[in-house]
Design a binder for these strands. Structure first.
Lengths: 204, 204
DNA sequence: TAAATTGGCGTACAGTTGTAAGCTCAATGT
DNA sequence: ACATTGAGCTTACAACTGTACGCCAATTTA
C-alpha cells in the first residue's frame, strides 16, 4: 500500500475513534489525545503526524459533521420535491438525522456553545448553510422578501435544533409527539410571517 | 463568629470562586476541584466538607442560576404591568440579564446540553418555569387554550435563548439589532399561533 | 543503488488531577 | 470544666495528562 494511502487510513482511524468516543456522557472537550490514539491503534505521539493538536482534530470533526448535514439537506430536498410539504418533510428528515447520527448531532449542539471561539464559529457556519437552504424554499413558496425569509428560516432552524436536543433525552416513543409539536410551531411561524408581513406592508 | 456562620461563608466562597472562573473559554466541566479550592482560599481537601464532589457543586450553581432567572422574571413582570408589551419587554429584560450575568447564562446554556443528565434535567426545569410564566401572560393576552399557549411559550423561550447565545459572541453594538430581530420572530409566532389556531378551529 | 523522507514507536518527564489518612484546634454541648 | 465535634490543614499517592526527543524501517526520490 502506498504511503499516502496508509497515512490517510490512520487519519480516518483517528477521526473514527474520536467520533466513537463521543456520547451523551462524553463531550469532545473531555476526550484525551491519548485515549483517542489508543482507540485508533497508534502511539500517543503518532497522533501529531496527523494533527497539530486536539483542536485541529475537533475542527475536522465539525467539518465532517457539516458534510453530513449537507448530505441531509440534499436528501430533504429530494423528499420535498416529491412530497411537497416543506415543513413536515424537513422536520421529519432532521429527526431521522438526529436519531441516526446522535453523536454527530451532539457534537454540533455542544460545540455551538462550547469553550472554543473557533469551534463556535465553525458550527455557526454549518448551521448558516442549513438555514440559507431553508430560506431558499420559503422564498419560493411564500414569495416574501429575502430578508424576511432568512429571518424566518433562522427561527425555524433554531426550533428544529432545539427539538433535536430534546429528542436526545426523550424516550423513542415520544419522537412522534416532539415532531408534531415542532411542525405546529413552524406552521405558526410561517403563517405569522406571511400575514404579519402583509399587514405591515398594507399599513405602510 | 459562630461555626455555622463561618461554614456558610466559605461555602459561599466556593460557589463564588466557581462562578468567577466560568468564562467564554472555561466551562464548568473544565473547572478543577483544586483550582476552585485555591481561589476560594481553602485546601483542596477542605472542599469535601461542603460538597461531596464537583457535581454537587455544579447542581448548586445551576440552582443559583435558576434563582437569578426567577428574579429576572419578577422584574419582567413588573415592567410588563407598566409598559404593556409582553414581547418586547420580555426580550429586552432577558437581553439585559444575558449581558449583566453572562457567565450565569453561559452555565445554563452549556449545561442544557452538557454531559451530565442531572445537569440537563436541572436546567430544563429552570427553563420550564420560565416558559410556564410566559405562557401565563400569553393566555391572558390572547385568550387561547392552555396547550397552545404552552407550546407557543416554549418556542418563544427557545428563540430568546438562542438570541442570548448569539449575543455572547456578538459585539455590543449589535445587541439592538439582535433584539429587534427576535422581537419580530416572536411577533410572527404570536400572530401565527393566534390566526392559525382560529382558522383550524373554523375548519373543524 | 544510494540517499532522503516520514509514519510510527518507545522512553521519559514535568505537571495536574482527585482523594485517602490523619492531625490540629477552636467552637459547641454537657 | 471537660469531652465532643467538625472545619480546615498537611502530607502522600497513584493515575493520568500532553509532548519533547530520538530511533527504526519502509517507502519514495534521485
Amino acid at each position: 500500500m502506498s504511503r499516502a494511502q496508509q497515512k490517510e487510513r490512520t487519519r480516518k482511524a483517528i477521526i473514527e475513534a474520536a467520533f466513537s468516543q463521543l456520547s451523551a456522557e462524553k463531550s469532545f472537550a473531555s476526550l484525551s489525545l491519548r485515549e483517542v490514539a489508543r482507540e485508533a491503534g497508534i502511539a500517543p505521539t503518532s497522533f501529531y503526524r496527523h494533527f497539530a493538536d486536539m483542536d485541529e482534530l475537533g475542527l475536522t470533526l465539525v467539518d465532517e459533521a457539516g458534510l453530513m448535514l449537507r448530505q441531509l439537506m440534499r436528501q430533504a430536498r429530494q423528499r420535498i420535491e416529491k412530497n411537497g410539504s416543506v415543513i413536515s418533510t424537513s422536520v421529519e428528515t432532521f429527526m431521522e438525522f438526529v436519531t441516526g447520527n446522535s453523536n454527530v448531532f451532539r457534537l454540533l449542539l455542544r460545540e455551538r456553545s462550547g469553550t472554543s471561539a473557533a469551534f463556535r464559529a465553525a458550527v455557526a457556519r454549518e448551521i448558516q448553510h442549513f438555514s440559507a437552504e431553508l430560506a431558499h424554499y420559503l422564498r419560493k413558496e411564500t414569495a416574501c422578501p429575502d430578508e424576511l425569509a432568512q429571518l424566518q428560516a433562522e427561527a425555524m432552524v433554531t426550533l428544529v435544533f432545539h427539538t433535536g436536543a430534546d429528542a436526545l433525552d426523550a424516550p423513542l416513543d415520544q419522537y412522534g409527539s416532539l415532531t408534531n409539536r415542532t411542525i405546529t410551531q413552524l406552521r405558526w411561524m410561517a403563517h405569522g410571517a406571511a400575514s404579519y408581513g402583509r399587514s405591515k406592508i398594507n399599513k405602510a
